[in-house]
């Protein structure tokens, strides 16, 4: 890339409502295919521009094994996401990336993989989940544990239904508060740990969600015998440049946008502010 900050242009091909405040945007690059011009790994993110409003980072929610399009799932939390939500199919946005380190997919090959997601934490894991499912024979058992505040806060509802029907994947879902018609689990995500058989010795666990949920989940996992290197999470910080220059996302001498956003729990614990 000649200029670190020059955005490429992408067209919104499709918009899917996930929850009342969350949408998935399907993006097509204007100047080339994703496979050829934007090779990425799950867990990397894009800097998306809504011109006139600014730029913000979003995890790629799709898998490199399905490079027909890029998908991002965005919850409305501020000016830029509000502006993004006003856009629809045919509209153009700017895009830079991929940024960040992403998940080490190779390290998970041959292992059991467990995904633990809370609320809007599922999108960053979704790309990795699809990557694993598309190369299913390379991995051991696949478990997805997902929790949200209420049933309407669950994202990717159709996909969850599909995953629930697969026999090569175990999916458990819970909500903090039930709504009429909800017959599933009620409670925080850690209650799901007792409903499945975790294999600390042979597994890697990917945890993503609100900071407080991550804290409880990681504590629980460590108590259950998972090693600090086997628990992998993503960190969030205020970001501007996405390329390790602007210093907004620094923790100590590490930059979440370059050295992360994916870190093992050991790396997170060893970071000094």
């Amino acid at each position: 890339m000649d200029d670190l900050y020059l955005p490429r242009l992408a067209r919104i091909a499709e918009v899917r409502d996930e929850t009342p405040d969350t949408r998935t945007f399907v993006l097509q690059l204007r100047d080339g295919s994703v496979a050829d011009t934007l090779p990425f790994v799950p867990g990397q993110f894009l800097e998306l521009s809504v011109f006139g409003c600014g730029e913000a980072p979003f995890c790629i929610a799709s898998s490199p094994t399905r490079p027909q399009a890029l998908e991002v799932t965005v919850r409305r939390t501020g000016q830029l996401t509000d502006a993004l939500h006003t856009l629809g199919p045919g509209d153009e946005i700017g895009l830079r990336g991929p940024c960040g380190n992403g998940f080490d997919v190779a390290a998970a090959r041959g292992k059991d993989v467990v995904f633990v997601a809370g609320g809007i934490g599922l999108p960053p894991l979704r790309g990795l989940i699809w990557n694993v499912l598309d190369e299913r024979e390379s991995f051991g058992r696949v478990t997805v544990l997902y929790g949200a505040r209420t049933p309407s806060d669950l994202v990717y509802k159709n996909e969850l239904a599909d995953w629930g029907r697969r026999d090569d994947l175990e999916l458990l879902v819970t909500v903090d508060r039930a709504e009429p018609g909800w017959e599933g689990n009620v409670g925080m995500v850690p209650i799901l740990f007792d409903m499945t058989e975790l294999q600390p010795a042979s597994s890697l666990v990917y945890v993503c969600g609100p900071p407080i949920m991550i804290r409880f989940v990681v504590q629980d996992l460590l108590m259950r015998g998972f090693g600090e290197d086997a628990v992998i999470s993503t960190l969030e910080r205020m970001m501007q440049c996405g390329v390790g220059k602007c210093n907004h996302c620094a923790i100590g001498h590490r930059y979440i946008c370059r050295d992360g956003p994916v870190f093992s729990y050991r790396q997170i614990r060893e970071m000094v502010e």
């Binding site: 900050y5 006139g52 730029e55 501007q240 440049c241 220059k245 602007c246 210093n247 907004h248």
Partner: peptide, 22 residues
């Protein structure tokens, strides 16, 4: 020191994306 933020500023009929000291 070189910390910065990136913001869009209105300019004529369009915008200028600016890098600014922070």
């Amino acid at each position: 020191c070189y910390c910065f933020s990136i913001k869009d500023r209105q300019s004529g009929g369009g915008w200028q994306r600016c890098r600014m000291w922070d």
